[in-house]
Amino acid sequence: MKVGVVTFPGSLDDRDAARAVRAAGAESVALWHADADLHGVEAVILPGGFSYGDYLRCGAISRFAPVMSMIIKQAQEGMPVLGICNGFQVLCESHLLPGALTRNHGLHFLCTDQKLRIEKTDTAWTSSFVSGVEIVIPLKNGEGSFQCDDETLEILEREGRVVARYLGDDPNGSRNRIAGISNARGNVVGLMPHPEHAIDPLTGPSADGLPFFTSVLTQLVGK
């Protein structure tokens, strides 16, 4: 199983994402932002960081990177894609996911171990979770406030596309405390917190993030 991890100029968490892929038992393949093809990968992770320096808007320039045209096309055809933090912002800018991520309501860059509830387990990236399970993984961003119009919010809730929700104090002012969403098909997931930093208690607050990466393997094996 080959899972690609994209490195844009300014990506930070690509190494940890690749490590999480290997910890889950898959082969990680490094994809460069200027690559014209996906080197035969069966799933893609867009990692956290500050791609293109977050210039203009987070993810706005990355969305037009050469590698993204192929990722967008294959995601629309059902390839599993996980966007973490900056990757989530890229997925929204690419219109693979609805809404947008804006400045945290408190203006602070947050770096904290965040409690979440996993609410949707029939996606390519969350099938290894039990629905309703509470997990703790790092949250670190300045622009993580999920915003969308009322109609989009109603659709996301009605179709059960909220993958994860913040528990405890509201960290960033996201609508309905949304931490992650999926597309209608469930192959594309965007998540503001960082599961790749929580795959081993030695280096993270928990190993609660690992099921995101084992989920996609189960999905690919089952095809």
Partner: peptide
């Protein structure tokens, strides 16, 4: 400009 209904914490600060 941010749409009127979108929170602008920078503007508020």
């Amino acid at each position: 400009m941010l749409k009127p209904e979108i929170l602008d914490p920078q503007g508020q600060a």
